[in-house]
Simulated scan of single mutants.
Amino acid sequence: MILTQSIILGVDVGTSACKAVAVNSEGNVLALSHAYYSPLSPKPGWFELNPNAIISAFTTAVRSILREVPARCVEGVGLDGISNSPILVDREHRFLRPCIMWMDGRGSEYILAIIRSLDEEGITPTLPITPLITLVKLIWVKENEPNLWRNTYSVLQPKDYVRMWLTGSIATDPSDASVTMMFDGETFRWADYAEGVFGIEIEKLPEIIPSYRIAGHLTKEAAEQTGLREGTPVVAGCADGVADVLAAGLTERFDSLIRLGTAGVFSTVFDKYLPDKEKYYIFAHAVPEKWVIQRMFPFGLPHKWFLETFCGEELKYAESMRLDPYVYVEDSLLSDVKKIDEGEMEGLIFIPNIRVFEDPSRFLGAFIGVKSLHTRKHLMLALLRGLACA
């Protein structure tokens, strides 16, 4: 019975939602929940998220779980979340501006200067230098919001911000740190050039601790708001892409995974640190002495656009019935898609913008071969095929 089981609560802080799961010591899923939030785009190519929305969604998702499992059985909380989405906080742990999300395109004007500076110092980039990475985002803040930067006490990724809110502790883990372009993969510390070359003060970057280490314990205030017990341990956690790999059981060299989500990713496990400045991102694995290389495409952005553009009424209906709107619409559409005869497609294809890796904010795509016989279901099939092959 659930009343006597030891339960671990896991929460994913994603691009558009917090998703929570309760599992027992055998790994059996006891409860699931989610709560959505909506990133804002104050300017073309910019994507931001209010940290209060993250905390609200986290609290909603956790309280939903606790309606099915007792809080006294929850023995620990694990977190994962999106990477390269910095939240800047002051000494009182208050956020100073909205989170700049991973797919935000600002800062591209600094990329050539960053590459030139690294080259002058004899430093080989360990990642592709694009607006996606945290280094570019922080340079943009320093140059465009200097007073805010001066008041910054720490730079946190979303899961780290939630953990700070839960426990008061400030830290990050190697997986999130490793894709900021400010990480030393040999020493597992912040790279000296972050401050020496780019003026990103190391003291503003959080301590890096192993993903499996307990980073803090739930405060009384957080316990009151979430319904969890005061003192519940919270581990450091990891980046969402690494959590996917770990959950899929990928721990050995060349174990691989394809994930289609907001960010579609191909992942492979390495047992050596082999960075590449052009081809892929490399994360420190949550498993010690392992690395995860990833090539990314934001599958979910065009997918979400399609559903919101062509299935708006169905989404509203599902929300009114307290159903997961995207799951509801997808299930309905896919049942129609499966009935399509290949002859009906008549060459209809969707071509995604594969250069989104260089600038993830600029999603473009094209349907080619649209005819009068084509309906929503045909466009959906073409979209899914195009994205799966991207």
Rank of each mutant, 00 (worst) to 15 (best):
L3E: 15
T4M: 09
S6W: 00
S6A: 14
I8D: 05
V13K: 01
V13C: 12
G14A: 01
G14L: 01
A17Y: 10
A17M: 11
A20T: 07
A22T: 10
E26C: 13
L30P: 09
Y36G: 01
Y36I: 04
Y37I: 07
S38F: 05
P39Q: 13
K43P: 08
P44C: 09
F47D: 01
L49Q: 15
I55M: 10
F58V: 04
T60E: 13
R63V: 13
R63T: 12
R67Y: 00
V69H: 02
V69A: 00
A71H: 04
C73Q: 14
G78R: 02
I82F: 02
P86N: 07
L88V: 14
E92D: 14
R94D: 14
C99Q: 15
C99H: 02
W102L: 07
W102G: 06
W102K: 02
D104V: 12
G107E: 10
P128N: 13
P128H: 09
I129A: 08
L132R: 04
I133F: 10
T134W: 07
N147S: 11
L148S: 08
V155T: 05
V155R: 01
V155M: 11
L156H: 06
K159Q: 10
Y161R: 03
Y161S: 06
V162M: 07
V162K: 04
R163M: 09
G168V: 04
S175P: 06
M182W: 03
G185Q: 02
E186K: 10
R189E: 12
R189Q: 12
R189P: 00
W190K: 08
D192Q: 09
Y193F: 15
A194K: 03
G196P: 00
G196W: 00
F198Y: 08
F198A: 08
I209G: 03
Y212T: 15
I214A: 05
K220F: 14
A222V: 07
E224A: 15
G227F: 09
G227N: 13
R229S: 13
G231C: 12
P233Q: 06
A236P: 01
A243P: 07
D244K: 04
E252W: 06
G264D: 07
F270Y: 14
Y281Q: 09
I282C: 02
I282R: 03
F283R: 02
H285P: 06
V287L: 15
K290G: 02
W291Y: 15
V292L: 13
F297A: 05
P298R: 03
F299Y: 12
F299R: 04
L301N: 13
H303M: 08
K304N: 13
L307I: 11
F310C: 04
C311S: 08
G312W: 00
A318Q: 05
S320R: 11
M321W: 00
R322Y: 15
L323W: 02
D324L: 06
E330G: 05
S332E: 10
S332D: 14
D336K: 12
I340M: 11
D341P: 00
E342L: 12
F350W: 11
V356S: 07
E358K: 07
E358V: 06
E358R: 12
R362M: 13
G369Q: 12
V370C: 00
K371Y: 08
L379W: 03
M380F: 15
M380Y: 15
L381I: 05
L384I: 12
L384Y: 01
A388C: 05
C389G: 04
